[in-house]
């Protein structure tokens, strides 16, 4: 087989290939899935980190609960434990829902339904989180002061007041950053799904 024959065989193959349009939707689907999962993975990573940290804090609170001395500290401890438990359950639910969004395992419609359910849940958690984060310093300060310092907030409320002022500045900022993180990732996932929908 000489080079001219090679070229001829190659050209015939090219002609046959040109008649076929075999780029499968599978590859486009993979592109979409890659884009969406990379953003969802960020959310899962963030939530997993949150769940681990919250669990650690919860265990610390449980282990040191006997150090709480007055009604304010005990109320703060119980309130904090409830908030942390609630946060862990929400975090796990979010992770599980995010992991269930997969174009390979489900149809596009089903995936979109799962994604919509996920964003709905996320929206609900966001609203709840704002309320909880606003209320949490009220429970957490007596607990933290009772557990880790010798200051009794019932006797010296000024220390708690400084803490509350600090929290009033710090908490909205953290909340804003978290909400912005979720918003940008969710909108990226939504846009990749929309791209996919436009293709078919």
């Amino acid at each position: 087989m000489d080079l001219d024959e090679m070229k001829l065989a190659w050209s015939k193959m090219s002609d046959q290939l040109d008649k076929q349009k075999k780029l499968t939707s599978d590859i486009i689907l993979r592109m979409t899935q890659e884009k969406s999962t990379s953003r969802l993975r960020r959310i899962i990573l963030m939530e997993s980190f949150g769940v681990i940290m919250t669990t650690i804090v919860l265990l610390i609170v449980v282990a040191n609960f006997n150090r709480l001395e007055n009604w304010a500290e005990v109320t703060g401890g119980i309130g904090t434990l409830l908030i942390l438990t609630f946060a862990i359950i929400f975090g796990i639910r979010l992770i599980r829902q995010a992991q269930g969004i997969n174009l390979f395992k489900h149809s596009f419609k089903e995936t979109l339904n799962r994604f919509n359910a996920f964003t709905k849940l996320l929206g609900f958690y966001k609203r709840i989180s704002i309320i909880i984060n606003a209320a949490s310093p009220i429970f957490m300060f007596p607990l933290a002061f009772g557990m880790f310092t010798d200051i009794d907030l019932l006797e010296d409320p000024t220390a708690g007041l400084y803490g509350l002022i600090g929290a009033a500045v710090f908490v909205p900022l953290v909340l804003y950053l978290i909400i912005r993180f979720y918003k940008s990732n969710i909108s990226a996932v939504r846009s990749s799904f929309n791209d996919y929908k436009d293709q078919f």
Partner: peptide, 17 residues
């Protein structure tokens, strides 16, 4: 796999190539 037409001669030459 992508070539749909039955052309064993071409296929043979392509394998050689």
């Amino acid at each position: 796999d992508l070539t749909e037409q039955d052309n064993s001669d071409l296929e043979e030459r392509l394998i050689m190539l």
